[in-house]
Design a protein around this nucleic acid. Structure first.
Length: 801
RNA sequence: GCGGGUAUGGCGGAAUUGGCAGACGCGCCAGACUUAGGAUCUGGUACUUCGGUGUGCAGGUUCGACCCCUGUUACCCGCACCA
């Protein structure tokens, strides 16, 4: 019997679309479930076999939830602003809007061919003015609250993209997107004060269910540390402030180091007798890219400031000050106190420059190596701190510093503010104008959206300005505040802007007077389950949590966190175990897979391929196995007979329901499919399947293979309504227990025999029976019994000596 | 260096969380049906000198360890001079 998948899949996809089968309703009286997958960037290459993995997984969860009676929101949209589209537009002289439209249409067709139960009525597109209206609006709120500010700063500049990158977009000194060289460049940039939310971004992780990996990556990225700021007097009058996490070691501070760019150098040029050498070092350090600085991390360099020195506030001793690029201007105060005895970097530097190393925590040999692992150590050579523990000393010295007005407790973060402007065309215009009288002025909210104007050329300019800067008619405008002459901001927002709040828009995609209606936000939020890639942990996921918290503070949303539960899928590799790429020639095209095997088979294989959370290589022969499974399911129609669930299959059927039901919740799609395969094998052995059994199997398999199961459901007339409108099967725990079980008889932990018993047989009977088994009797013959164990339904272990 | 993770047949991977290692699938072998098989069906398939031995390696805890503990090796991912 032929399995006409193309025909079936087309039929049901059309029918679902016509019936709006998977549209979420705004009936707020029903229990809701909001399932979210990361919306794709509609690239010109189209769908990749990696895309359907998370989509299928969440489709399975969504379909199951609907059958369980939830009002399910499972939306899809397009994160369509971005560089590849712009680059394509530049190369082919086509408007990015047209490129986007074409790519979206292609993507949508590909997604629809896989039968995902997205609510297409709620489709959104970040490049739609009705959408970016509210991206701009949120930016204005950030600006009004002082969380968006412009700053002249050293930024990451990708030479090949001619664009500024956020710290998160620089990977190993190279551009995350194009792999090109990234250099430092001074530019005036819009910044978002994500650092104002640093504490909450860490602390509120306790409110959500994220994988440890994601949680620890975010904590590590934000990098909170507790310590103290300490003011050191200098011989030139000015105080030099340092940050340290080890104020307890202050007595051991034998020198200081400042970053090459530190203002102390500029302020005291006169007093520095070796100024030339210092400035030369500064120039050299500035030329090094971040990458080189990291590469050379092991070899410490630096120059001593001759003529300027610091004074240790507790010992009163004069100590030298060095300039070195192992101290970063962008962290802490740009200056440190160096305690070589208890810090590896300081130790290395001190050895190189022959500086004194004073032990202040007992326990190590500080002349041999830095003793850093000293949390349990005791203070020494430290005046009034002597004999205190490290923890006590921290408290005592901090209290002393505060009393003496020489410093105070301080918390620092590695997280930097978010560089928010891009010198690009294809992004959201920043809705601000610059007026010489009034400074930066926001557009009136009723004037949003600020439409992206048409330009002749999308080429970025070499001087680092956005293509929009060439549009003088557009740039020159009037100040919304004073009516005088003003110019528009010509930079646009980064791609991460639109995706930072898209999950809100799905709740109410056509709302005209707000990002979304607050009643609907209250109903749908938070997102119950959000699946996405690990690569977004410190980008999208962190950014959107930040925006959500800001909107929470504004009162727009009523949950502290946007996503209750986050899961991550593993990548699908090429058949050769390598990342799929055009250059390796190992790319699998999903269109071909669907054409050859059908969407249901593709979906099954994407789920059966391996542990959902781990990477897995594609396999041509593996997909054939799933195709065989689909065909065998289809052919069940040849052996179907009337009747309910038969007694002899009842236990396996209920066990299968239990397994599939639980496995879906735990992302164990591979074993859920394996369980259904096992049940199919059992039914095949029986030579027949009753309609009652078939109906349950179809319901269980439906989320995985929706077209196939709907068709069988209809052909076999298993119910009046189409399958998707029926309820998820429920297992009876009592029917999941076998009538008899086979247990193992061990002697001293070695398996000797097996025995079939009733699961609730009393222990003494089982033990007695076990001892009579010939091999067991042989093994214990003549030995002294030590212990007799019976684990009900599992095993007997007889320990003898 | 720091953080997270992984290691099981020829391959992808299971193992109810301390209780029968290798479910399920692929591949392979044999058979059936066939003019034919890269189709379908049936059976077999960790290794073995048939005593046993086996979850990267070495120890430990336990009646019992893929699972817990200590040490170690290899690989993957993220961060990385953050004071």
């Amino acid at each position: 019997m032929d399995y006409p998948f193309s025909e079936i899949e087309k039929k049901w996809q059309e029918r679902w679309a016509k019936e709006h089968a998977f549209a979420a309703t705004n009936d707020t009286s029903k229990p809701k479930f909001y399932a979210l997958v990361e919306f794709p960037y509609p690239s010109g290459q189209g769908l990749h076999v990696g895309h359907p993995r998370p989509y299928t997984a969440m489709d399975i969860v969504s379909r199951k939830r609907r059958m369980e009676g939830y009002n399910v929101l499972f939306p899809m949209g397009w994160d369509a602003f971005g560089l590849p589209t712009e680059n394509y537009a530049i190369k082919n002289h086509i408007h990015p809007e047209i490129v986007t439209e074409k790519n979206v249409a292609h993507f949508k067709k590909q997604l629809q061919m896989l039968g995902f139960s997205f609510d297409w009525d709620r489709e959104i597109n970040t490049t739609d003015p009705a959408y970016y209206h509210w991206t701009q609006w949120i930016f204005l709120q950030l600006f009004k609250k002082g969380l968006a500010y412009k700053k002249e700063m050293s930024v990451n500049w990708c030479k090949s993209c001619k664009v500024v990158l956020a710290n998160e977009e620089v990977v190993g000194g190279c551009c995350e997107r194009c792999g090109g060289e990234v250099v430092r460049k001074e530019k005036s940039q819009w910044m978002l004060k994500i650092t104002a939310y640093a504490d909450r971004l860490i602390d509120d992780l306790s409110l959500v269910d994220y994988p440890d990996k994601v949680r620890s990556s975010q904590i590590n990225w934000i990098g909170r540390s507790h310590g103290a700021e300490v003011d050191f007097e200098t011989n030139v009058g000015e105080k030099l402030r340092v940050y340290t996490t080890r104020p307890d070691t202050l007595f051991g501070a034998t020198y200081m180091v400042i970053a090459p760019e530190h203002p102390l150098v500029d302020a005291h040029k006169e007093e520095i007798s070796n100024l030339d050498a210092v400035l030369e070092y500064r120039t050299l350090a500035g030329k090094k890219s971040d990458f080189e600085r990291t590469e050379l991390a092991k070899d410490k360099t630096g120059v001593k400031l001759e003529g300027v020195c610091g004074i240790n506030p507790v010992t009163g001793k004069e100590i030298p000050i060095f300039v070195s690029d192992y101290v970063l201007m962008t962290y802490g105060t740009g200056a440190i106190m160096a305690v070589p005895a208890h810090d590896e970097r300081d130790w290395e530097f001190a050895k190189k420059f022959d500086l004194p190393i004073i032990e202040v925590v007992k326990g190590g040999n500080v002349q041999e190596e830095a003793f850093t692992d000293c949390a349990t150590g005791v203070m020494t050579n430290s005046g009034f701190l002597n004999d205190l523990s490290v923890e006590e000393a921290k408290k005592a010295i901090t209290a002393w510093l505060e009393k003496e007005n020489k410093g105070q407790a301080k918390t620092n973060f590695k997280l930097r503010d978010w560089v928010f402007s891009r010198q690009r065309y294809w992004g959201e215009p920043i809705p601000l104008v610059y007026c010489e009288k009034c400074g930066w002025v926001p557009l009136a909210e009723e004037d949003l959206p600020l439409m992206l104007p048409a330009v002749e050329s999308y080429e970025p300019t070499d001087n680092g300005e956005s293509p929009l800067s060439k549009l003088t008619d557009w740039v020159n405008t009037t100040c919304p505040h004073c009516g005088g002459k003003a110019t528009r901001e010509t930079d646009t927002m980064p791609q991460w802007a639109g995706s930072s709040w898209y999950y809100l828009r799905y709740c109410d995609p056509t709302c005209l007077n707000a990002p979304a209606d607050s009643k609907l936000l209250d109903y749908w939020l938070p997102v119950d389950w959000y699946n996405g890639g690990m690569e977004h942990t410190t980008l999208h996921l962190l950014y959107s949590r930040f925006w959500h918290k800001f909107l929470y503070d504004l009162g727009l949303v009523s949950t502290k966190e946007p996503y209750t539960k986050r899961t991550s899928h593993g990548m699908i590799l090429g058949e050769d175990g390598q990342k799929m790429s055009k250059s390796r020639g190992n790319v699998v095209n999903p269109d071909e897979v669907v054409a050859n095997y059908g969407a249901d088979t593709m979906r099954l294989f994407e789920m059966f391929i391996g542990d959902f959370e781990k990477t897995a290589p594609w396999s041509q022969s593996g997909i054939k196995g799933c195709r065989r499974f689909a065909e065998r399911i289809w052919n069940l129609q040849e052996i179907v007979c009337d009747g309910d669930v038969r007694k002899e299959l009842e236990v396996s059927l209920h066990k299968t329901i239990k397994k599939v039901t639980e496995d879906i919740e735990n992302l164990k799609f591979n074993t859920a499919i394996a369980a259904m395969m096992s049940f199919l094998n059992e039914v095949t052995d029986q030579g027949s399947i009753t309609k009652g059994e078939l109906a349950v199997l179809m319901l269980l398999l439906n989320p995985f293979a929706p077209h196939l199961t709907e068709e069988i459901w209809e052909r076999q007339q298993l119910a009046d309504k189409p399958l998707y409108q029926n309820a998820w099967p429920v297992f009876d725990p009592e029917k999941c227990v076998d009538k008899t079980v086979e247990i193992v008889i061990q002697v001293c932990g070695k398996i000797k025999e097996r025995m079939v018993i009733a699961p609730d047989a009393p222990a003494d009977e089982v033990l007695a029976a076990a001892k009579k088994l010939p091999k067991v009797a042989d093994a214990i013959e003549g030995k002294t019994p030590v212990k007799e164990l019976y684990v009900p339904g599992k095993l007997v272990n007889l320990v003898v000596r």
